[in-house]
Amino acid sequence: MAIDAEAAGKLALDPITVEVERGRLRFFAKATGQTDPVYTDVDAAGRADHRDLPVPPTFFFSLELEAPDPFAYLAALGVDLRRVLHGEQAFTYHRPAYAGDKLTLRPRIVDVYSKKGGALDFLVKRTDVHRGTELIAEAQSVLVVRNPEVPQ
């Protein structure tokens, strides 16, 4: 089934508010192969003029998984998770975020398009990350959904 672009554009996605914890930052830095000690050592972060451990690159993507059902929007659009592939992700950083920050993520679907005669649908989601009223970053992800009704 093709994704209904109009329904996707109107779909309201709930904001997610999380407090960034040092332990989680250290774990994420280690899991993603960060070797710079500013991501794991508070003293090293301070020497590099950070007020605490900074958020490592791509960390914001993992915060979206804090929602009670992070893929509910796909179910609402009739997307079968077995047909979903990660297409790409991109980040635009405006300000650093740190351990102890309370961040609010505001996701929304910004585009839906098809390729290969409708065999593949692309769902583009953008998430603005705020600390209070301050825009910290924009995260964009693209999911590829195979449409089983169109022959490959």
Rank of each mutant, 00 (worst) to 15 (best):
residue 1 M to S: 12
residue 1 M to G: 12
residue 3 I to V: 15
residue 5 A to F: 01
residue 5 A to Q: 00
residue 7 A to P: 05
residue 9 G to N: 04
residue 9 G to F: 05
residue 10 K to A: 13
residue 11 L to F: 09
residue 12 A to R: 10
residue 12 A to P: 02
residue 13 L to Q: 13
residue 14 D to L: 11
residue 15 P to H: 13
residue 15 P to W: 10
residue 18 V to N: 02
residue 18 V to I: 08
residue 21 E to K: 15
residue 28 F to E: 03
residue 29 A to W: 01
residue 30 K to I: 13
residue 33 G to A: 05
residue 33 G to E: 06
residue 36 D to Y: 07
residue 36 D to E: 08
residue 37 P to Y: 02
residue 37 P to G: 00
residue 39 Y to E: 05
residue 40 T to N: 02
residue 40 T to Q: 04
residue 43 D to C: 04
residue 45 A to K: 01
residue 45 A to V: 01
residue 45 A to I: 00
residue 46 G to V: 08
residue 46 G to Q: 14
residue 47 R to D: 09
residue 48 A to Q: 11
residue 48 A to Y: 12
residue 49 D to H: 14
residue 52 D to W: 04
residue 54 P to Y: 03
residue 54 P to A: 06
residue 55 V to T: 04
residue 56 P to D: 03
residue 56 P to C: 00
residue 57 P to S: 13
residue 59 F to Y: 15
residue 62 S to P: 08
residue 62 S to G: 10
residue 63 L to V: 13
residue 65 L to I: 12
residue 67 A to F: 05
residue 67 A to V: 04
residue 67 A to R: 08
residue 67 A to I: 04
residue 68 P to C: 11
residue 70 P to M: 12
residue 71 F to P: 03
residue 73 Y to C: 08
residue 74 L to T: 04
residue 74 L to V: 04
residue 75 A to G: 15
residue 76 A to I: 03
residue 79 V to L: 03
residue 80 D to Q: 15
residue 80 D to P: 15
residue 80 D to L: 15
residue 81 L to N: 00
residue 82 R to S: 15
residue 82 R to F: 14
residue 82 R to T: 15
residue 83 R to Y: 10
residue 84 V to Y: 01
residue 86 H to D: 03
residue 86 H to V: 00
residue 87 G to R: 08
residue 88 E to V: 02
residue 88 E to N: 09
residue 90 A to K: 15
residue 91 F to E: 11
residue 93 Y to W: 15
residue 95 R to V: 02
residue 95 R to D: 07
residue 95 R to K: 13
residue 97 A to Q: 03
residue 98 Y to N: 07
residue 100 G to V: 07
residue 100 G to I: 06
residue 100 G to W: 06
residue 100 G to Q: 07
residue 100 G to K: 09
residue 101 D to Y: 05
residue 102 K to D: 14
residue 102 K to S: 15
residue 103 L to Y: 08
residue 103 L to C: 12
residue 103 L to A: 11
residue 108 R to G: 00
residue 108 R to F: 00
residue 109 I to W: 04
residue 109 I to A: 06
residue 110 V to L: 06
residue 110 V to H: 06
residue 110 V to R: 04
residue 114 S to V: 10
residue 115 K to W: 05
residue 116 K to L: 09
residue 116 K to S: 11
residue 116 K to I: 03
residue 117 G to F: 02
residue 119 A to P: 00
residue 120 L to D: 05
residue 122 F to L: 12
residue 124 V to N: 02
residue 125 K to Q: 11
residue 128 D to E: 13
residue 129 V to P: 00
residue 131 R to S: 01
residue 133 T to R: 08
residue 134 E to L: 10
residue 135 L to G: 01
residue 136 I to G: 03
residue 137 A to E: 01
residue 137 A to L: 03
residue 138 E to V: 11
residue 139 A to L: 09
residue 140 Q to Y: 12
residue 142 V to A: 05
residue 143 L to V: 01
residue 143 L to P: 01
residue 144 V to S: 03
residue 144 V to R: 00
residue 146 R to I: 08
residue 147 N to W: 01
residue 148 P to E: 04
residue 150 V to Q: 11
